[in-house]
Design a binder for these strands. Structure first.
Lengths: 211, 211
DNA sequence: GGAATTCTATGACATAGATCACAAAAACTC
DNA sequence: GAGTTTTTGTGATCTATGTCATAGAATTCC
């Protein structure tokens, strides 16, 4: 997959400072495009944080169709949900491009949180923000039409990036990615985006949806 | 609304022990049926925990249609999402029946978490479990048909009650409630439930869906 | 620079589920 | 226990979105 999810982050605010993570014994791990970092159903052994590149956190159904739960950009953590509730991963993490991941053993992660309550509070905030986004998207999926679903998703992207980088960075999404995040089909997304862009509600840049 | 969401809990495991909460200065608050505890859009000032009764955590759209994000039963917390990320409540909490709520000031709640790391970890676990349920439901809403959405929801109810009470308690859901939690219309839920019950995939008790 | 992928695009058609319009049954109210 | 409200139930339509087929444009890859 091409790096259309352009994570050109200016000043990243990682969940846990990289040096801190390394001091606690985290290890760097290079992953190449399409490589699976962990799979749905696996028991969680590590806390993961993206150092560089981009990762998608997805469910894949019986027919092989992907539903993207989150696109992870540098500084963000992923898979911590399963670490906290000690249940199998409920989605797989797959590298969108060649990336570098920081990995910390689960037990060490808990020790770190215990010693650094501020970091623990940062995770409570992160989980709450993610939950908030799910509330929003679920409500849209339940009651809104395709155009509303898309604009809600784009709005989220505009907002969420503010949490992890100082300067607003540009995110470009392909219509295929939007389809995989809203549960709509590519054709529907294409037609809806065309309509939204005619109305000036969505901005297109070199053919890609810009937010 | 009649107490169809029968929270006949045998042995409740509250998020925070009631005595502990009271010792920290929490106050009891009686709310009557249909009373709004907090509204979508309001700033969060309190941590809430249900003592007795039942509460629904809902979004209401422009046409007045409800989407139930969670049904809260005794011992469970609600609204803590907004407390953690310090953003307006993203859904309203409404009493399903006459209930008693425990309320603790936000700043005190944070002090409590700082002094009692185990309780903080319990909240990380709770947020993760709730997020996990949203992952699941979102995937279903995106790709599955009405019958799958319903069975996924019922399955969740079966599971989630285990987290807060020792003995498995019976939950009865009306078709209207299922509609409001899956984004389907009542008529569709009625027809799907009939079909599922014909196939023996769902159990009906005195006309209500049992799980 | 040509081949192979991946994306975008568009038309024709099918269909699950929404909507509307009733009505009966059940539950709750006083 | 008569009246009100809520819930369940069922048929007849309507429509947004999925599905399928096909193709051109844009990228990536040797």
């Amino acid at each position: 997959m091409p790096p259309t999810f352009d994570a050109h982050i200016s000043i990243i605010r990682p969940m846990i400072n990289t040096d801190t993570l390394l001091a606690w014994g985290a290890s760097h791990k290079k992953v190449s495009e399409s490589e699976i970092i962990f799979s749905e159903g696996q028991a969680p052994h590590f806390y993961f944080q993206l150092d560089s590149g981009s990762v998608r956190w997805v469910n894949i159904n019986d027919e092989g169709k992907e539903f993207i739960q989150y696109l992870i950009c540098p500084g963000e953590s992923f898979g911590e949900m399963a670490v906290f509730d000690d249940m199998p991963h409920s989605a797989s993490a797959i590298a969108n491009e060649d990336s570098v991941v920081l990995r910390l053993a689960k037990s060490t992660f808990f020790q770190l949180l215990e010693e650094e309550p501020e970091i623990h509070f940062a995770f409570s905030r992160l989980l709450s923000q993610r939950l908030r986004f799910k509330f929003l998207l679920l409500k849209e999926l339940a009651y809104a039409d395709s155009e509303h679903r898309i604009t809600t998703l784009l709005e989220y992207f505009k907002q969420s990036r503010k949490n992890i980088c100082e300067k607003s960075n540009k995110v470009m999404l392909t219509r295929q990615q939007i389809a995989k995040m809203t549960g709509l089909r590519v054709e529907t997304v294409i037609r809806s985006i065309r309509h939204l862009s005619d109305k000036g509600l969505v901005h297109i840049n070199h053919g890609k949806v810009y937010c």
